[in-house]
Design a protein around this nucleic acid. Structure first.
Length: 474
RNA sequence: GCUCCCUUCGUCUAAUGGUUAGGACAUCAGAUUUUCAAUCUGGAAACAGGGGUUCAAUUCCCCUAGGGAGUACCA
C-alpha cells in the first residue's frame, strides 16, 4: 500500500512570487489534490541577508489569490537551523563530513587558478583528508560534506528520465558555514525528510542539486523522494525572463487585470497538456494531471495567449463576480485608473452595463477603461475620431432623435432600439448614420458597447442631456 | 571551460515506425453587424541539420548546431 503523497512548494523570500514559482506551486498543489495527498508550504529563509518580510507576504498573498491553499502551518526554514546543524554534526561525527579551514579568499584564488589552467573550478578537497590538528589555532572553519569521488550519481527524474552525474564534478559542498548556520542543500534534505515530503516537483534549475541532495540522502540512510524537474519558463525571446517581459510578481498580473482562473489555466498549459484541451477549470486539471504528462522542453511566456484566455474567463464570469473582482482590484490600482471615487449608485450602474462591457474586455483594466464614459461629467470630452462623426447633419439627426426619445414612455433597450430604427427610416438614413453620432455624443468615443444598451444604462435624463449637449452645440 | 537538460507551425502543444503531421493563441481573408469586440467560415504556417538502424523514420540511436540550467560559506 503506497503511502500518502506529500508535495511542497519551497520558495526563498528574496523577491516576489514570479510566474515560474507560481506554476511550480500549481503543479505541486494539483498533484497533491489529484492523489489525495498534502501540499505543504515552506519558506526558505536561511539567507538572512536577502530574505525579507515583504517578500514573504507577497508569496503568501500570491498563493492565496490563485487559490493554492496549503495544508498545515507554513514552515520557516531558518527556524529549523538548529535541527540542520545537528544533522551536520552527526555527519561530522560519522566521518561523512569534515572541517574545512580554507578562507573564502583562498577558495577564490583556488577557483581562479583552476579556471586559468582550464580545469573545473570545483573545490579541490584540500581539507578532506587533512588532519584537523594542522589547522591554525582557533581558526574559523566550515563543514563540508564528504561526497563520493568515484563513480556516478544517478537521479531518476519523473520528467527528465535517468540523469547521470559523474561524481568527480560534484564537489564537497559546504553544509555548515563558518558562522555555524546551515546551507541550502543540507536544509532542504533535512526539511523534506522531516516534513515527510514524498514528491519534489520544482524547477529544472535544481536538477544538479538533486544529484548533490541524493548523495546527502544516501549518507543519512534516508529514502530519496520522487523528483520531477519541470523545465523553466523563458521570456518571449527565448532567453531568461527579465522584468521587461514576464518576470513580474504575480501581484503585477493582478494589477494588470488578469483573473486568477485565467492565470491558472494559462500556467497549467505551459509545460503540461491534456490532448487538445485548452480551456478548462482547475478541477479538470486535478482530474487529468499526472507527472508523466509534463513536457520536457522549456516554454516561452506569451502575453497574447494569456490575454485571450483572460477574455474568455471575463466573458464567462457573472456580472456580480466581475463587480466583486473590480472591488477587489481597486485598492491595487493607481489612483487615476482606479475606481476609488465610485459610490454605490455608480457601482450599480456599472453592474447594469456589465453585459455589454465584459464582451469587449481582455483584462479588468480594459473593462474599467471601457466603462469610463458611464461616469464622465457633462459636458463630456469628445475624442478626435468621435468628433469627426458629429457633423452638422449628424447633429441635426440627433436633435430629431432627442425629441423622439423624450416622448418615449418606456425606457428599455427594446423600446429605444425600436425608436431608433423608426427614426432612421423617417430620416431616410441607415441606422449607422444615427447610431454612430449617438455613440460619439453619449460616450465621447467611436467605440462602445451596443448603443441602445448605452442609452439604457445611462438613464433617460443623462442620455438626453448628453445628446442635447451635442445637438444644440454652436 | 566543465557537467546536465532541451529542440514539431511565430508561440503553447498533440500524435504516430507507414497520417493530407492535429488543436489552440497570434496572423491573413470572408461572413455577420449601429462601432469595437464576440461569433462563424476559410487560408497561410512546423518535424533544427547530418549520419545511421529499418522495407519504412518526425518517431529509435549517434554526431553537429542552437537554446537553457548549474558550476557560491545564494536559494
Amino acid at each position: 500500500m503506497p503511502g500518502k503523497v506529500v508535495t511542497r512548494f519551497a520558495p526563498s523570500p528574496t523577491g516576489f512570487l514570479h510566474i515560474g514559482g507560481a506554476r511550480t506551486a500549481l503543479f505541486n498543489w494539483v498533484y497533491a489534490k489529484a492523489t489525495g495527498g498534502e501540499f505543504l508550504l515552506r519558506i526558505e529563509d536561511t539567507d538572512r541577508a536577502r530574505s525579507t518580510e515583504p517578500a514573504i507576504a507577497a508569496i503568501l498573498d500570491g498563493l492565496k489569490w490563485l487559490g493554492l491553499d496549503w495544508d498545515g502551518e507554513v514552515v520557516f526554514q531558518f527556524a529549523r537551523a538548529e535541527r540542520h546543524a545537528e544533522i551536520a554534526r552527526q555527519l561530522l561525527a560519522e566521518g561523512k563530513a569534515y572541517r574545512c579551514y580554507a578562507s573564502p579568499e583562498e577558495l577564490d584564488a583556488m577557483r581562479e587558478r583552476a579556471r586559468a589552467e582550464g580545469r573545473s573550478p570545483v573545490y579541490d578537497g584540500r581539507w578532506r583528508d587533512r588532519d584537523p590538528a594542522e589547522a591554525p589555532e582557533g581558526a574559523p572553519f566550515a563543514v563540508r560534506f564528504k561526497a563520493p569521488k568515484q563513480g556516478e550519481t544517478v537521479v531518476e527524474d519523473q520528467v527528465q528520465g535517468k540523469v547521470v552525474f559523474p561524481n568527480k564534478d560534484l564537489d564537497d559542498l559546504i553544509i555548515l558555514r563558518s558562522d555555524g548556520t546551515p546551507t541550502y542543500n543540507l536544509s532542504v534534505v533535512v526539511d523534506d525528510h522531516d516534513m515527510g515530503v514524498t514528491h519534489i516537483i520544482r524547477g529544472d534549475d535544481h536538477l544538479t542539486n538533486a544529484g548533490r541532495q541524493s548523495q546527502i540522502y544516501a549518507a543519512l540512510g534516508w529514502d530519496i523522494p520522487v523528483f520531477a524537474h519541470v523545465p523553466l519558463i523563458h521570456g518571449p525571446d527565448g532567453a531568461k525572463m527579465s522584468k521587461r517581459h514576464g518576470a513580474l510578481g504575480i501581484d503585477a498580473y493582478r494589477a494588470m487585470g488578469y483573473l486568477p482562473a485565467a492565470m491558472l489555466n494559462y500556467l497549467a498549459r505551459l509545460g503540461w497538456s491534456h490532448g487538445d484541451d485548452e480551456i478548462f477549470p482547475i478541477e479538470k486539471m486535478v482530474e487529468w494531471f499526472g507527472l508523466d504528462s509534463l513536457g520536457q522542453s522549456p516554454s516561452r511566456f506569451d502575453f497574447a495567449k494569456l490575454e485571450n484566455l483572460n477574455g474568455h474567463y471575463i466573458r464567462a464570469s457573472s456580472d456580480a463576480d466581475l463587480i466583486a473582482a473590480l472591488r477587489d482590484l481597486s485598492p491595487h490600482l493607481p489612483q487615476e485608473t482606479g475606481l476609488a471615487g465610485l459610490n454605490d449608485a455608480d457601482w450599480r450602474k456599472l453592474e447594469l452595463a456589465m453585459p455589454g462591457l465584459k464582451e469587449r474586455a481582455k483584462t479588468l483594466i480594459e473593462l474599467i477603461e471601457g466603462a469610463r464614459f458611464l461616469f464622465a461629467q457633462r459636458p463630456i470630452e469628445i475624442e478626435e475620431k468621435a468628433a469627426k462623426l458629429l457633423t452638422r447633419d449628424a447633429r441635426t439627426r440627433l436633435a430629431s432623435f432627442h425629441a423622439s426619445l423624450a416622448r418615449l414612455d418606456d425606457w428599455t433597450v427594446a423600446r429605444i432600439e425600436a425608436a431608433a430604427r423608426v427614426q432612421a427610416e423617417e430620416l431616410g438614413v441607415k441606422l449607422g448614420d444615427l447610431a454612430q453620432p449617438l455613440r460619439a455624443a453619449l460616450t465621447g468615443s467611436n467605440v462602445s458597447p451596443g448603443i441602445f444598451e448605452v442609452l439604457f444604462v445611462l438613464g433617460r435624463e443623462e442620455a438626453l442631456a448628453r445628446i442635447e449637449d451635442q445637438a444644440t452645440r454652436d
